[in-house]
Design a protein around this nucleic acid. Sequence first.
DNA 1: TAGATTGTTAATCGATTAACAATC
DNA 2: TAGATTGTTAATCGATTAACAATC
Lengths: 222, 222
Amino acid sequence: MNKSGEVSASVIKRLPRYYRFLGELIRQKVERISSRELAALMKLTASQIRQDLNCFGGFGQQGYGYNVMDLHEQIGKILGVDRRFGTILIGAGNLGRAIASHINFEARGCELIGIFDSDREVAGKVVAQTTVRHTDELEFFCRTFKPEVAVLCIPKATTQAVAELLVSMGIKAFWNFSHYDLSIDYEDIVVENVHLGDSLLTLTYGVTHLLHGDDEEKKEDN
Amino acid sequence: MNKSGEVSASVIKRLPRYYRFLGELIRQKVERISSRELAALMKLTASQIRQDLNCFGGFGQQGYGYNVMDLHEQIGKILGVDRRFGTILIGAGNLGRAIASHINFEARGCELIGIFDSDREVAGKVVAQTTVRHTDELEFFCRTFKPEVAVLCIPKATTQAVAELLVSMGIKAFWNFSHYDLSIDYEDIVVENVHLGDSLLTLTYGVTHLLHGDDEEKKEDN
DNA sequence: TAGATTGTTAATCGATTAACAATC
DNA sequence: TAGATTGTTAATCGATTAACAATC
């Protein structure tokens, strides 16, 4: 945590991983854990864990460590998993359909209430228990149901325009899978870009240099 | 770049994005660009761009800037897009099928030569011009075709075991979409974990705190 | 040559790690 | 109480930014 109450992006990015590991520990019936033990498990330092958690408050107890269930719940609250942000998905192609059916939105504070596609062939089909609507209905839908989060699985070329329309309809956050770096000029819009292609290229870099004996390499991401 | 020839992970993670923006500039027929102009476009500092590029060599020319085509090609070579790493994908569920058809592997130095699934109902079906094989054939396939990269789109529970088998069959790198943090004990294995759930949670954090007037918020990733 | 912009060194900033007093 | 482990401050490390001499 810096001078004011701001939590740095590095810390925030680690929170979901803590949440995930704590969930797993609950499943394994672990009741308490020390920062040292958790660090060993997650391949971090105990120091970092304590620093990270103390950005949000003192969740532990000296001499004991952390109660797993309690810490899991606290981090969940910080992340907002108890929310129900109305969420729409635009673009029901291969990727869009996979995201819609593969991701547990509810477990992450979002509720998928609408799927849209500009292709009239696709509209009407059912994906993840939801009937795909044509994008013609988008504005009416937004006015009626006021979704706050939009998942973009549309081509690069249309992304900027669609995003601007959605912002004007009240969308507050984008989970952007399009190949485009969404940088809205509006303030107070949250953007999370997922560049799968970039991720694969990072891997390619790794293999390329591994096989070429730049003997430093030993990658492990999170 | 640190003392020895090692390039830091932060720099490597930015390379694909440079590559992407330069590709776009080529499409727009831009011939040359200065670090200052590129920085404005990518929302970075000119200093950072010059530092990053100079980890790999002097690609620019004083008083002129960088030749876009040339720089694009150089970064491509560094990433390894001119390679043809034999690549297999395990798990032809929703996500696996979407990845197989949505990602341009060839443009990123990988060639998708096999898709596998443990479900006999799925095996035999065609995904991305490739017939899905049953995992029974996996070992024989690896011995025969010697793939180096594996894309894992399988459930959490099976990931560790599958990964270990694949390492023993000579796989050098994993693009891991399973919910599991793959940390192979073997050295010289490259892992790129894609945690879509974590990414969505980061977004949820953003919306949660945006709407709650932690007025600092103004997120824009990578 | 003069102007522009790089490559590179030095300064700053932030994030991670170490240390330890507080306390359960 | 004694032992363990946190919360937090201080030290270190690395990454980003600024500055500027080199050079096209």
